[in-house]
């Protein structure tokens, strides 16, 4: 792997911050993680953008304490200057401050955009409890760090650059091991326990959800009724579902239409020319199939020839496995 000296200071306008990873007994090789940062500059400007820092390629086990610890204890910013850390795959936190976005969502980032907003939101404790004690970030993902003011952000940025100049690589997560839930088997044991949530809590969340769902349904129905009864500005009344008579189902209508079509069809073999044409068509079909078969055989032949000459995809395996099968341990 390339040594630090060859690592550029900047990549495409982003500053590079090398972080050395703590060595582990199972993998004692030294390793460096590269974090990229730049002032936040979103496409759609937000009021807080000017005091935010945009991080790219955050380590997979990043948590809010990690970032805070990195910027304050390790880079030297005074504590309390960070207001919030927003990860790309996390939904905006709800008003109740609950961690709403469990990590299992594979394409969380995309999915969030895709969700239609008419869903009953997981408000009022109707969300299902998370089954993980700590969310993981997807590799290479981004985060936005929101500082209390612009000055803090600049200071953090400057301090990070200075560290880089002095060739000091902060050790990732050094010193906060106790503050975040552990990884390894403990994580999965916790996951196993959390999977089986408390029954009462679950029941409550389901009830809450159903209540708000019912409320939403009712409001939609109310709206429809209203639309049905009131004319709009142009004097038209919108036709909506519901009302006194149920509208026909789409499937039923389609079925009827098909039946009608069937009825309108005449006899197929009434006239002589019809049966003649049919016969012709059948012969044509046979010829076509025959041609198809010929083509298939030709392709097969070609392929066989090619396969014989060309190297096999996993040739290496073949020969190796052969020798291995030949001499078992």
């Amino acid at each position: 792997m390339p040594s630090t000296t060859k690592i550029p200071l900047q990549v495409a306008g982003y500053n590079v911050l090398p972080l050395s990873l703590p060595t582990l007994p199972s993998f004692p090789r030294p390793a460096t993680h590269y974090l990229y940062f730049a002032p936040h500059n979103p496409k759609i400007p937000t009021p807080t953008a000017s005091r935010s820092l945009f991080l790219v390629n955050v380590p997979f086990d990043t948590t809010e304490p990690h970032i805070k610890h990195l910027l304050s204890a390790q880079i030297g910013l005074p504590a309390g200057r960070i207001e919030d850390v927003q990860f790309a795959n996390q939904r905006r936190k709800g008003g109740n401050g609950e961690e709403a976005k469990p990590k299992q969502d594979k394409k969380g980032k995309k999915r969030k955009r895709g969700r239609d907003e008419t869903d009953v939101e997981d408000a009022d404790g109707s969300a299902l409890p998370s089954t993980w004690d700590r969310n993981l970030q997807y590799n290479g993902l981004t985060a936005v760090v929101l500082f209390v003011d612009r000055a803090s952000m600049d200071a953090a940025s400057k301090a990070a650059k200075a560290l880089r100049k002095e060739r000091i690589e902060p050790v990732w997560g050094d010193g906060i091991e106790d503050k975040v839930p552990a990884l390894g088997s403990a994580r999965y044991l916790n996951h196993h326990r959390l999977t089986y949530a408390n029954k009462d809590q679950l029941l409550e969340s389901v009830n809450n959800y159903m209540t708000s769902y019912a409320a939403k349904e009712a409001s939609v129905a109310r709206l429809a009724t209203k639309q049905r009864q009131e004319a709009d500005a142009d004097g038209f009344i919108t036709v909506t579902r519901g009302g006194r008579t149920n509208p026909a189902k789409q499937e039923a209508a389609q079925e009827l239409a098909e039946k009608q079509k069937e009825k309108q069809k005449g006899l197929d073999d009434f006239y002589r020319y019809q049966s003649r044409e049919k016969r012709k068509q059948r012969a044509g079909e046979l010829v076509r199939k025959f041609e198809e078969d010929k083509e298939r055989v030709r392709r097969m032949k070609e392929k066989r020839g090619r396969f014989r000459v060309g190297p096999h995809v996993l040739k290496r395996d073949d020969s190796y496995l052969l020798t291995q099968y030949a001499q078992p341990e």
Partner: peptide
């Protein structure tokens, strides 16, 4: 046009960290 490539050592390191006590060696 600075370029990037996959950081294999770090990725293996990540795997080691995630696996924790379950991994004896990589």
């Amino acid at each position: 046009n600075a370029q990037v490539t996959i950081n294999k050592t770090a990725a293996l390191h990540d795997i080691a960290r995630l696996g924790g006590d379950m991994i004896s060696r990589i």
